[in-house]
């Protein structure tokens, strides 16, 4: 994997939410480039469009206009079926609300992305166990989400985001629902992953955390302001 080559290029992307009469311009002609192995944080006031941008990069939504190239592939042109492949192979997404399946063990939650590609079940379980060990939950594999603390749940979610060896890890306020101690632990995992070469984009409201990244991008009213 070539370092310093660009992994993600966003050029002239806008997102407009059309609500009955009014149109909300959540993103206004955004352009940015992220290199392989980079750790970038995105900050900005509430409603500035941070989540909207993450959803577009994470292939969860499509831009109204503009182009997004991820790992050499133009994802703004893809159909839903192809987008699901990109989501599965190229993106690890960590949500603010953890988004784990209830009544389902940590291990099964982590295994899930691999079941949506051609990985065999045994191999998937092996990888999921390793990922859970990595985030320090080797002892909690068979716990259900309601038996885990918030910090532990978020670590399960990180393990799930890592399991497909996706080139990019997206975190949309992953520490937003956590106390500062758990937040620091999560941040430690992110930094550790970064040291091992993972490309990371992290949205946060916490300046202290944002400053730990290689680069800080500031968004306001759907525009980049630095």
């Amino acid at each position: 994997m070539k370092k310093n080559s660009s992994l993600l290029t966003v050029s002239g992307v806008s997102k407009i939410y059309q609500m009955d009469e009014v149109a909300v311009k959540a993103l206004d002609n955004i352009s940015l480039t992220i290199k392989r192995g980079e750790f970038v944080s995105i900050v900005g006031p509430s409603g500035s469009g941070k989540s909207t941008l993450m959803h577009l990069i994470g292939c969860l939504d499509i831009p109204t206009s503009g182009k997004i190239i991820l790992d050499g592939e133009d994802i703004s042109e893809l159909e839903e079926r192809e987008l699901s492949d990109v989501r599965n192979h190229k993106i690890g997404f960590v949500f603010q609300a953890f988004n784990l399946l209830p009544r389902t063990s940590a291990l099964e939650n982590v295994t899930m992305p691999l079941l949506y590609n051609s990985t065999s079940e045994e191999h998937a379980i092996e990888k999921a166990k390793a990922a859970l060990e990595m985030v320090g939950l080797g002892e909690r594999m068979y716990h259900h989400p309601n038996q885990l603390s918030g910090g532990q749940q978020q670590r399960v979610a990180i393990a799930r985001a890592l399991i497909t060896d996706a080139p990019i890890l997206l975190g949309d306020e992953p520490t937003g629902n956590l106390d500062s101690k758990s937040g620091t632990e999560i941040m430690k995992i992110f930094r550790n992953l970064h040291q091992h070469g993972k490309t990371i984009i992290l949205v946060t409201h916490d300046d202290e955390l944002a400053n730990q990244a290689d680069r800080k991008i500031m968004i306001k009213d759907g525009k980049i302001i630095n």
């Binding site: 994470g58 079926r81 699901s84 492949d85 192979h89 988004n99 899930m112 992305p113 949506y116 799930r160």
Partner: peptide
């Protein structure tokens, strides 16, 4: 609906 959204976010195709 949330579960469906999550499965799709993790790469589940519509036909799955």
């Amino acid at each position: 609906t949330q579960e469906i959204g999550l499965r799709k976010a993790l790469g589940a195709k519509p036909e799955v």
